[in-house]
Structure formats: C-alpha cells, structure tokens
C-alpha cells in the first residue's frame, strides 16, 4: 500500500511568517480532503508535496522504503505524482488530446505510451467531444478537467489537486466531484478545499490544517462525529470544521 508521509515538515517564505511547522502526516490511498481556512497553508503543503516548492526542514517520502525526497531521487518521485494548481493554464497551440499526451510525456511516459493513454484519460474527465478543440479555448472548469486528465494519463500514484473547484459554477463542481469519485481508489488523491459542502460523498478522509498545524486527520465519519448531532451530513461537517478552526478565521 502506498503512503505519502511528512515528518517534521516546516516551511516559511523568506522574511515571512512560518506557514507550516513540524507537520507530521501520513496520507494513504483514497481521496483525502485537505480542509482549512484561507492562509492555513493548504496550497503551500500541496506545492511542497509536488516539489514545486522546496521544504526548509523535515522529510517528505512516498513509501517509507524510498526514503525522503532529495535532489537525487526527485525525478523518480515526480514520476509518481501529479499536481494540478488552482490557477492551471494549458500550453497554447495544442488540442486537448495533444495536451494530455504532452502532459503524460512530461511526466515520464514514452511518446507512444502518452498518445495511447490520452483518449482514456480524456474520456474519464468527460472531454471526449472536445478532444480536438484548442486547450486554451476551454472554459475554466473544462481546463481544470483537462489538467486532471493530464494527471490521469500520467498514471501517477499520487494526485495533488489545489482548490480544483474554486470559482466553478455548481454544475461544473458537481461534475468535478463525480470525476474524483471515479478515480482508482488505490491512488493517493489529496484535494485542498475550503468548501465543506463538497466533502460528503466525495472523500474518504479529511485532514484539517489551520495556521500551519494539523488539527484533524481521520475518516469522514470520524469527522462528522465531531459535528452537531441530529443535523444533516453537510451541517455536521460544517459544524465540526467550525469547532476545529479558530473562529477568527
């Protein structure tokens, strides 16, 4: 079973406040929602796990046996992860199909393999009809699905999605949630969000971050148990979240 673990992970921007401090978390297979208010360090943690930011101290390891991510095994590590930032922008000039194949190639697939995998990934995110459209001509929600298709075509063990549904209309959000539910449960899927209404039914586990500290990490059922009893699941999640996170947020 794959695990993505952090040990004593700390990070701060130069001349900035400490964003993450001695964070110890282990993510396993399945979909985990990374909840937290704005500025909690969710995007920073995702970017650190994607290695687009470098941590100052602590360890990040995919499967304990592989050891911590360092400059020497960075390539191998990156081959196993996919990252979709909140502000995903596709490369200009390519069609959807070409873009997905290019993303897979960039992450280690051979050209032939990348071409072969692209149609299935596009179908999984519901963009088959747009396969020959220009990637840059897609709407915001479609572009994020395109980014996810790139991650799926790459066949990564870990998929890191940073606020993938932020700014999307309810239909697009529902669609994205459905796609997430269809992802192989053997993969580690970590999705940062501050929308508690997206949690129920989509995720297996929840990790709550606040001010760079882990406030909760457990199953959705355990999380809801901390909420107001006798309310519907969404309200339970909302109230549990409210109890964990400083009201000042």
């Amino acid at each position: 079973m794959s695990t993505l673990s952090m040990e004593n992970l700390s990070f701060s921007y130069p001349r900035g406040a400490v964003l993450l401090e001695n964070l110890n978390v282990v993510f396993g297979p399945g979909r985990t929602a990374l909840l937290g208010p704005n500025g909690a360090g969710k995007s920073t943690l995702i970017a650190l796990l994607a290695t687009v930011l470098r941590h100052k101290s602590g360890l990040i390891a995919l499967n304990d046996s592989d050891g911590s991510v360092t400059a020497t095994n960075l390539r191998k590590y990156r081959q196993q992860i996919s990252w979709l930032p909140q502000d995903f922008v596709p490369v200009g000039g390519l069609t959807v199909e070409e873009h997905v194949a290019y993303s897979a190639w960039l992450n280690g697939a051979s050209r032939r393999e990348a071409k072969r995998r692209a149609p299935a990934a596009i179908s999984q995110v519901g963009l088959t009809e747009m396969a020959q459209s220009k990637a840059t001509a897609l709407s915001g929600g479609q572009q994020r699905r395109l980014g996810l298709a790139g991650a799926l075509a790459h066949d990564a063990k870990v998929i890191l999605l940073d606020e993938p549904t932020a700014g999307l209309d309810p239909n697009q959000r529902d669609r994205f949630q459905t796609i997430l539910q269809g992802i192989d449960p053997g993969k580690i899927v970590l999705v940062s969000t501050h929308q508690t209404e997206d949690i129920d039914g989509t995720f297996d586990r929840i990790c709550v971050l606040d001010k760079g500290q882990q406030k909760f990490h457990g199953s959705v059922v355990e999380f809801m148990a901390m909420g107001e009893p006798e309310t519907d699941p969404r309200d339970k999640i909302r109230s549990a979240y409210g109890r964990l996170v400083d009201r000042e947020n």
């Binding site: 290695t51 191998k76 590590y77 873009h99 960039l106």
Partner: peptide, 20 residues
C-alpha cells in the same frame, strides 16, 4: 513563451530539464 504562460503543466514535470 507558450510554455511560460502555462501553469501547472511543466512546473512539476519529471522529465529532465535538458530533455525538455
């Protein structure tokens, strides 16, 4: 510049920089 304008496509790519 096409790639420069993109976000999230090449940033975490595992392909070696010189290969890209």
């Amino acid at each position: 510049s096409r790639e420069h304008l993109s976000r999230g496509v090449l940033d975490a790519a595992s392909r070696n920089y010189f290969e890209r």
